[in-house]
Computed example of a mutant assay.
Amino acid sequence: MNIALRFINRSNDCGNSEVVLFQRDVVPEFDELAIAWRVIRYCGRDCIHPFAYSSDVEVALGDDNGNFSPRIAAANGSRLIVATHASGRPRLARALDGTVHSNIEVVNQMGRGAVNVNAFVAGRLMAAKSAVAPGQKAIFRFSPVLWIGVGSQIEEGRALASAVVSSANTPLELAGIASADIVMTGGGAGETAQPFQFKLENVLRL
């Protein structure tokens, strides 16, 4: 399901800051870093940046050369397996043994070779598990919550610096929402500068 969102800059910043949106995996690994799902740049005061968030997740394998396998839709509770294709390359497929709790599981069933497993939301990379070895599994579970904050030199689809993640402490709860505006206020320079704040407005519920 798609949720129509509009970012609106009502801050004292004139589009110089980069606004990043990302999700926190409900079952993160110790060394896992959040991925910059969407970065909004050069959005001036009173300007609007429309985009869509989807509750649907797609999973694909990836390698260190920037190649990806075809994506497979995977709702919470899905189990996927990684097997060896006739070509010798890893192949992602649906498991035949049903669902698994509320997680998305991707099990590496190859005899050898680690794989990178990627989760996409609305066509953009949201999370990744690197070097999943044979016999191991990548586990994803997302709640309908986007986190938002301000940073600099952020690259979409790349891991966020821990300082950005720790400072981006505003959750946007999207459960049961059809559309909403994300309004940014604050900012500025000198003694009158205020922290950036984000709030959902004009919320239309399902």
Rank of each mutant, 00 (worst) to 15 (best):
A34D: 02
A127R: 08
S54M: 11
I139S: 09
V115K: 06
I81P: 06
R45M: 12
F22V: 00
F30R: 14
H85Y: 10
L21E: 05
A34L: 08
I72H: 11
V100N: 02
S87R: 11
G98D: 13
F30G: 13
M110E: 08
P144H: 02
F140N: 14
L80W: 07
S152H: 06
R71N: 02
A119M: 04
N16L: 13
F142G: 09
E29I: 03
S152G: 14
G157I: 05
A73T: 13
L80I: 01
R91N: 00
V132C: 12
A122H: 13
F30T: 14
R71Y: 01
E155A: 02
V26I: 12
E156H: 15
R79F: 10
Q153G: 14
A133L: 15
M110Y: 03
G149S: 03
S130P: 07
R112F: 12
R38D: 07
A83K: 14
G98T: 12
H101I: 05
A95F: 03
V132L: 11
D64F: 02
A60F: 03
D97N: 15
C47W: 10
A75P: 03
P28L: 12
Y42T: 15
R38Q: 14
I48F: 13
V57M: 03
P28H: 14
Q23E: 13
F30C: 15
V132M: 09
G135Q: 05
A133G: 15
R124M: 09
V26W: 09
V39R: 01
F68Q: 07
R124K: 06
E156Q: 15
H49N: 00
V20Q: 03
V59T: 11
A73L: 09
I154D: 04
E32C: 08
E32H: 08
N118F: 02
Y53T: 04
G151P: 01
A73I: 15
L96V: 10
N108L: 05
I72C: 10
G123E: 07
G98W: 06
D31A: 12
R141V: 01
A133I: 15
E155T: 04
